[in-house]
């Protein structure tokens, strides 16, 4: 029995095609401006002097991120009306019939998973395609990835399969929320912080 559903993301494999982002929007009928899964383009670096030679030190990789259905969801702790709750299998839901639209959870979530949804005038977020998962199918983002950079499953199983890395630059400290997330880093990620790499596509995400 699954006790905590989780996503796996392979930053080394991701090409930044955004098929996951579009599949999510399509399946959940999200309008313009609402993204439950986003692909962040992380860039930085430039030129670096090594001895007498200038060499490129460019950082460039992608991070595909949705709600991480955290073990300690700070969004739920912050919500004044208890509109955010966690199912037995770890999936975190927003009850749009209870949400008052104060948008406080948007600020509280370090992964910016909560998104205002104009159609319901409430916040909304990834629900792990729970109906598909309950039927034994993968979430839309996982199914759409052409490079198999995304996977899903029980957090314990994913850790056995891929390791237990939960942080790469510029993701927040995982101790804040305990994200149900397993990562495989891109080779540039180790030096991204020291080279000042930042998200480059804010207008998009």
């Amino acid at each position: 029995m699954v006790t905590q559903y989780a996503f796996f993301f392979d930053a080394a494999a991701c090409s930044g095609c955004k098929a996951c982002q579009v599949a999510c929007k399509d399946r959940n009928d999200l309008g313009p401006g609402t993204l439950w899964r986003r692909v962040y383009e992380v860039t930085g670096g430039g030129w670096e002097k090594k001895g007498q030679v200038w060499v490129p030190s460019v950082i460039a990789y992608n991070v595909s991120m949705a709600c991480n259905h955290c073990e300690n969801p700070v969004c739920g702790a912050a919500c004044p009306v208890k509109a955010i709750w966690k199912r037995e299998d770890g999936i975190v839901f927003v009850d749009t019939d209870l949400c008052i639209g104060c948008r406080y959870c948007e600020w509280a979530c370090p992964y910016t998973a909560l998104r205002f949804h104009a159609a319901t005038n409430t916040v909304s977020k990834c629900d792990f395609c729970y109906d598909a998962v309950d039927a034994g199918k993968p979430p839309a983002c996982v199914a759409a990835c052409p490079r198999r950079a995304l996977d899903f499953g029980d957090l314990a199983d994913l850790r056995k399969k891929y390791g237990d890395l939960r942080h790469i630059h510029p993701l927040p400290d995982p101790e804040q929320t305990g994200p149900a997330l397993v990562l495989r880093p891109h080779r540039d990620a180790a030096r991204a912080a020291e080279r000042g790499a930042e998200v480059a596509n804010w207008e998009e995400v």
Partner: peptide, 25 residues
């Protein structure tokens, strides 16, 4: 005016145990 569903705000004290927003109210 910052709420999108102000009439649902009657439940705003529901999460005093963990939410500083409930405590503020």
């Amino acid at each position: 005016f910052h709420l999108h569903h102000p009439f649902r705000a009657v439940r705003v004290l529901a999460n005093v145990r963990t939410s500083w927003l409930s405590r503020e109210v």
